[in-house]
């Protein structure tokens, strides 16, 4: 395969997401955005085509200026209402990108996601589709406490009819969001709030990254680490320490959990014979547990050590800074777990 070098620019994940939205809206008039305060200041006289916030985290900043309030729709605080409307709009021909401000709010609108959007194609015998992207914020790290800090992508990965996408850096965020918007299925797109400000090289242009393809963030022969979202960065930090001890870990970022790049994970374990999964989500019935089960099933004979999971504890996210700090898997804990199995 010929790798085509593309020009890149350094930007934050927030700006990379913004650029992907702008590209997608320019290329397809059916793409609309809706969510709470994604522009902000609707109906305020001095903000006709100007945003007040551009999204609570600024991801949708300045889009209303270019595309107007007919395509950048501020919704009331009405998750079931506007997520359901997004499903209905997707089923009738638009390609909405809805913003669920925090994933923790899924309880307010889950029926519209998993019972309506995710199932309609199946229930209707293939005669409908739901090209909807729901962007949402995940992750602990800013002391936002239990109702604004969860990950919960495992819940959605569990459900057929939903694709789950979880980028770990700005370049992946842009390419994956473009593919998600162009995809004909319902995609849940999880943005870790701690990564919004993290900067990285982002390719120019409008190329998407295919859903279902993982990425090897670091090559190594000794232990495979499958790390999700921010845990990729935590694992890269751990990898430096471990390398000094002669342990070379291979870090796989699956990038999408549904579909999951099983081949990439199994190929790596075939090489290293050892697997650690690092996941900020809660451990029971989780993505980590799912990947562990997959490898135990399909790669049993590849293993030289038990599969280890480094995850958050089975608790809600605590508020107090020292408590939150132990909640999130740390590079030290990751390194310690790797050492246990080599």
């Amino acid at each position: 395969m010929v790798a085509v070098a593309r020009e890149t620019r350094t930007m934050s994940m927030k700006d990379a997401l913004n650029e992907a939205l702008r590209i997608a809206m320019r290329e397809d008039p059916n793409v609309i955005l809706l969510g709470e305060d994604i522009a902000g200041g609707a109906d305020v006289d001095h903000l006709i085509n100007e945003d007040a916030w551009g999204g609570p985290m600024g991801v949708t900043k300045n889009l209303v200026q270019e595309f107007g309030r007919n395509r950048v729709l501020d919704t009331p605080i009405t998750e079931a209402g506007f997520i359901g409307a997004a499903v209905g709009a997707a089923a009738t021909g638009l390609r909405p990108v809805a913003e669920l401000m925090y994933v923790d709010f899924f309880g307010c609108c889950m029926d519209q996601i998993f019972d309506q959007g995710a199932k309609l194609r199946y229930m209707f015998g293939g005669k409908a589709k739901c090209p909807l992207v729901i962007r949402t914020q995940i992750g602990a790290g800013v002391n936002a406490a239990a109702q604004h800090s969860g990950c919960h992508y495992s819940v959605f990965t569990h459900m057929p009819g939903i694709k789950t996408v979880i980028p770990s850096n700005p370049a992946d965020a842009k390419g994956l969001l473009l593919s998600a918007i162009r995809d004909d299925d319902l995609v849940m797109f999880f943005e870790n709030k701690v990564l919004y400000g993290v900067r990285g090289e982002v390719p120019d242009g409008d190329e998407g990254i295919p859903l279902g393809k993982g990425d090897i963030k670091r090559a190594g022969d000794d232990v495979t680490i499958v790390a999700i979202s921010r845990m990729v960065n935590q694992s890269l930090t751990a990898a430096k320490t471990l390398s000094g001890e002669g342990i070379e870990v291979e870090i796989i970022d699956p990038r999408t959990l549904s579909p999951l790049d099983e081949d990439m994970i199994l190929s790596s374990v075939e090489k290293t014979h050892r697997l650690v999964i690092v996941d900020e989500d809660n451990p029971r019935c989780s993505a980590a547990a799912d990947i562990a089960a997959m490898v135990a099933d399909k790669g049993f004979d590849l293993l030289d050590a038990p599969i280890k999971m480094v995850t958050a504890p089975h608790t809600p996210v605590p508020f107090s800074p020292p408590l939150e700090q132990v909640y999130v898997p740390s590079p030290e804990k990751i390194a310690e777990t790797v050492r246990e199995i080599v």
Binding site: A80, F82, G88, A91, Q112, D115, Q116
Partner: peptide, 22 residues
């Protein structure tokens, strides 16, 4: 016809979405 629906009250937001498309 966007579907009969097993969930009571689920169709109202969907109809809003179809109306939004229109």
């Amino acid at each position: 016809m966007l579907g009969a629906n097993g969930i009571v009250g689920a169709g109202l937001p969907l109809a809003c979405g179809a109306a939004l498309t229109a």
